[in-house]
């Protein structure tokens, strides 16, 4: 039972990867990529968790209470925001691909064409 978060992280990773591999639309592919990214957030937070630990914010609890690891939370936090910007960049690439090649199907985008 204590392996459950990691198992779910693996499951989400594979599901997102399946979406990327069998996608027919570039935008769908980019969103599935962001699902794969979310599995890494889950993995990171799962590593840093301590049973019955509180959040690492000591405004209203005394500083020696058991708290979860702050480093992985900091990493995940910046990750989420920056990941969204990178997803936006990928979507801009998709828009330009549509303009340039006229199609959004990854199967039809032959890199040697034109």
């Amino acid at each position: 039972m204590s392996f459950l978060p990691f198992a779910i992280a693996i499951w989400i990773f594979l599901v997102g990867l399946y979406g990327v591999v069998t996608s027919h639309h570039l935008v769908h592919l980019v969103i599935c990529l962001s699902v794969v990214q979310s599995s890494t957030y889950l993995l990171l937070l799962g590593i840093g968790y301590r049973t019955n630990g509180a959040a690492s914010i000591f405004v209203d609890i005394p500083p020696n209470t058991k708290a979860v690891d702050p480093v992985v939370k900091a990493l995940t936090l910046t990750d989420v925001v920056v990941g969204a910007a990178v997803t936006a960049l990928l979507l801009a690439l998709a828009v330009q691909a549509q303009k340039r090649f006229g199609t959004l199907d990854p199967d039809e985008l032959d890199p040697l064409r034109d």
Binding site: V68, L77, V80, G83
Partner: peptide
């Protein structure tokens, strides 16, 4: 639920 409220805030706003 994993005791990370600010990551949750970030995820809700972004996602």
């Amino acid at each position: 639920a994993f005791a990370a409220p600010d990551v949750a805030l970030s995820s809700i706003v972004i996602g």
